[in-house]
């Protein structure tokens, strides 16, 4: 697709916007619609567009499949980790209140944390799925 200069330029401009929007959805989920899942998808969408225009190999240079796998695993681990942390602070599994001295702060902190975990997982999983399908040659 090298010949479509217009597309390439627009994409280059668009991608930061898309990623930013993803981040907004990620961290604004407590106040308005959205959250980790939607953000993850949008984030992944940015990369997908990038690889459609610039080629799969370029996208994999930015985030390699291995890195995506590790991040996906880390996302889940972050979520579970927060759950387990609340064990040691005297709460039940996923009881965020106990994470910080103030109940509300603890809840908010916990929610942001797990949403981040979900976001990372979803984004990298979506990317992994895309890589898996796109990286296969038709035979």
């Amino acid at each position: 697709m090298n010949q479509y200069v217009v597309l390439r330029v627009i994409t280059k401009l668009m991608i930061p916007v898309i990623l930013l929007y993803g981040l907004y959805i990620q961290f604004h989920g407590e106040y308005s619609p959205g959250g980790g899942f939607q953000a993850g998808i949008i984030f992944a969408a940015g990369f997908v567009i990038y690889s459609l225009i610039y080629g799969l190999d370029k996208a994999q240079e930015a985030i390699s499949p291995e890195a995506a796998h590790i991040l996906a695993a880390l996302g889940v681990l972050l979520y579970i980790g927060i759950g387990i942390a609340s064990f040691f602070l005297g709460g039940n599994f996923l009881e965020y209140k106990v994470l910080l001295p103030d109940d509300h702060a603890g809840e908010t902190f916990g929610i942001i944390g797990i949403e981040l975990g979900v976001g990372i997982t979803v984004a990298t999983v979506a990317l992994t799925l895309f890589y898996s399908f796109a990286g296969r040659e038709r035979d």
Partner: peptide, 23 residues
Amino acid sequence: LLIQHLPALQVVLPMLAAPIVML
């Protein structure tokens, strides 16, 4: 602590191990 959280651990243990094993 362990006894208290047994029901959660029952599920969380394999769940926690899965991503680690994958790596």
